[in-house]
Simulated scan of single mutants.
Amino acid sequence: MKAAPDVTTPTAYLAALPPERKAALTTLHRAIRQAVPKLKPGMCHGMIGYGIGPYKTKSGCSGEWFKVGLANQKNNLALYICSVDADSRYLVEREAHRLGKVSCGKSCIRFKKLEQLDLDVALELVKEAATLPMLGV
């Protein structure tokens, strides 16, 4: 779910969440900030983004996106790690088997409770993503 238009900061985003989701995303937010302080947080497309910047794809699409993102979605919580390694493998897709009892896409990790996510592995990928170029660039 996208944040309401009046939610313009990560602090306001977290404050607007239901208590059980607020606790989980606040814990993740703090862990990401500690793991990669150089990736500044902000709001991007209704989510918290870290390392927000421009991108341009080979097909010519361009816009603004993040290297790492957090979102409160209708049915779950989501951690996005939007980077690929030197072999063009999405980090999340590559390490999905290590991330816990979660559902993964190419760059999205979905979970209902923070305890389902292997936070150490997720933060390892967040740190790796911080060293890599933006997707599509």
Rank of each mutant, 00 (worst) to 15 (best):
G60T: 08
I32L: 10
N76D: 11
I52P: 00
L91P: 03
Y80K: 06
K38Q: 15
K58W: 07
L70D: 02
V36D: 12
L114A: 11
F66T: 05
K40R: 14
M43S: 08
G60Y: 08
H97W: 07
R98I: 02
P54N: 12
K56R: 15
V84K: 15
A96F: 04
P41H: 02
I52R: 03
K112C: 07
A35C: 12
L79V: 02
E20I: 09
A31N: 09
C104S: 04
W65T: 03
G100C: 04
L114D: 09
A23N: 14
T27C: 11
A78G: 09
L99E: 05
S83Q: 15
K38W: 10
R89E: 14
M43E: 07
A35F: 09
K22W: 02
R30Q: 15
C61T: 10
L99Y: 03
R94M: 12
C82T: 10
W65I: 00
E20S: 11
V92G: 05
A31W: 05
I109D: 02
L79P: 02
D87K: 15
E20H: 13
H97N: 12
N72V: 01
G46K: 07
K113R: 15
C108R: 08
G49Q: 03
H29E: 10
A96L: 08
G42F: 08
N75C: 01
A78E: 09
N75E: 08
Y90G: 06
R21S: 12
Q34S: 12
A23S: 11
P41A: 07
C61G: 11
L77E: 08
C108M: 10
F111Q: 08
V36Y: 11
G51W: 02
G60R: 12
